[in-house]
Amino acid sequence: MKNTTLPQLYQEMRRVRTFEERVGELFVRGQSAGSMLHLSIGEESAAVGVCARMRDGDTFTTHHRGHGIFLARGADPDRMMAEIAGKDTGYCHGKGGSMHIADMGLGHLGANAIVGGGIPAVVGAGLSARHQKSGAVSVAFFGDGATGQGILYESMNMAALWKLPVMFVCINNQYGMGTRIDQATANPDLHERAAAFGLAARTVDGLEVEDVVEAATDLMEQARGGTPAFLAIDCYRFYGHARKDKSPYREELEEEEGRKKDPVLQAREKLLTTGLMDTAELDALDDEIAREMDAAIDFAIAGEEPQMQSMFRDVYAPTEPEPEPVRTRLDRILAQG
């Protein structure tokens, strides 16, 4: 299990924050391959707090706003940034991008661009863990938007019914795209739904990362023991749904208030007031992280584009013939005449 001292948690959250800021820059500089970039700024405590309680061998899926979770599970920012830029040097050789990043080595069964789409996979991974007696937990990370999808309830029901080592983590950033949670549901106490299915369930405020760690510790332990768990983490999505979204659907005043709920600054303040770190140490740490993420941008930009022929690779297993390209087929057919 990772060290969960506040300096460590701050460092991880700062890495997520800075990574996301650099992703935004990559987009502005026209170097990002995807038009779909969803930043998790404001949600760092959820990613870092839960991942602090995950172990080697555990698996997880994420939603489309999952950079921070992957990073907190140990992802290499170079290969992440390269993937977001669509380069061959990325985790998925440029085929997945921001919303379909994955790494089997770290147990990342995939980010997902379908809201709720990655949730049932953890039920399957839970079955595998039980069959293999591996002791692993599988964690589904998703947003409040996914609580509108039936697949969440099907999955929670099965996990509870079969007592699987599975945890559901709902990062409630208050918005499903442009629709605020209170406009999407009559009962915004999301953990009550999970409790109704028989899961160990609670909601925690995401302002203090240590609170998230504490809640995750308890629930993850229960999940590992066969009582599936659900944790909702309240936070605020600082910026728009996607990179180009200027959030016309919410008031500036609301945003100002929302951004006061900043888990990174909160942890920094606490480190200062408790004397665990001083300003110079924190600034030095922040600078070091900035250099790490700058290097990730450089790595991404310098990376090779995928080869054209790779387009037909990995539709099926490497032992199988690749699909015939349209041009090849047409040349063959028209040459007959």
């Binding site: 990325g90 985790y91 998925c92 050789h93 440029g94 085929k95 997945g96 379909h100 994955a102 790494d103 089997m104 995939g110 690779r313 990995d314 539709v315 099926y316 297993a317 490497p318």
Partner: peptide, 8 residues
Amino acid sequence: RYMFGGQI
């Protein structure tokens, strides 16, 4: 398999 670059 495709999205994840052939990893699995």
